[in-house]
Amino acid sequence: MAILRLLAIRLFTTLVTLSGVAVIVFFVIRVVPGNPIAMMLPPGATDEDIARLSALYGLDQPLVTQFGIWVAGVVQGDFGTSITTRQPVLDLVLGRLPATLELSIMALVMAVILGGAAALTGTRFRGGRTEGAIDVANGMALSVPDFLWGLVLILLFGVLLPLFHISGRVTPSLELPFTTDFYLFESLIRLRFDLWADIVSHMFMPALALAIPLAAIIGQLLKQSLKETMNLDYVTLARTKGYGETRVILREALRNAALPTLTLVGVQFTFLIGGTVIIERLFSYEGLGNMAIDAVINRDLPLIQGIVLLFALIFTVVNLIVDLLYAVLNPRLRHA
């Protein structure tokens, strides 16, 4: 029951959020200088040509009318046509979404593994040199932004020790038998481990670059929270039962300590999705972020609007998943 109510409230707030985002993105990209018509026509085009093309795309209408037309379309699932490619925005965006989702989830998994390992090791050997080393590594990981980690990784694993592919999502010469755009998952399901390895090898560096700062945040917060939990009475009681330090951390402390971290991971994951914009560009990874940059450069207004709306939708869905997970992990909230 509680879950259903949460879902209903969230559905409503999601709609409000998306409406707000729609208004902001629509008007902001029309206020900033530069317009798509200028990008499409060769230099020296006559005013008449400009006016004709503007009329063709409806750009001569008042802004409010344009907004009305766009919103009416969006409500019916029509996000308009991309100005540069002349293809429906929805098809373009949905075609790229799986690539970005796979990259983000891969990065999240890496961040949780790295951050979790750092926090657990730091807690197990707290007060010693190991914890100090982990704190230093965390600080470094946190103070360097993801795109710089991208460059560092390219230097390490692309140039000095070429282990992974630097650019793209998959080697172009490979035959892809896929019916969906979720290459990573579909290659696993089809048991095509050769393709899977190729895709992971392409994804490894951009995902790691995105994961490193998030791993540091997870590591720091989880370690802090674990250390506090380790002083609680129920942990002391478990020690008297004969459990060793590692068992006590994993069995008694981890689940309770993970709760505050989980909320933060949700918030940070949305930042990570934002980070894909630059990282995908850096690694020529064909995802939404890369497409967003192209759309902005070309002033492809409908495409920008579509991508931004989709990002906003992803953010709200991620937050909803975090809230649901929180309720599942915390028995005190389940019956509330």
């Binding site: 609680l232 009475d233 129920y234 002391t236 009681l237 478990a238 020690r239 008297t240 039962k241 004969g242 459990y243 060793g244 008694e252 689940r255 309770n256 992990l329 915390n330 028995p331 005190r332």
Partner: peptide
């Protein structure tokens, strides 16, 4: 340490002071 823990766990027990904090909430 490991042997000490095992021996204590097998032969001794604690009744803690505060029942509200001595049980794991999860």
């Amino acid at each position: 340490p490991a042997e000490r823990r095992r021996r204590i766990g097998a032969t001794c027990a604690l009744i803690p002071q505060d029942p509200l904090t001595a049980l794991n909430p999860s």
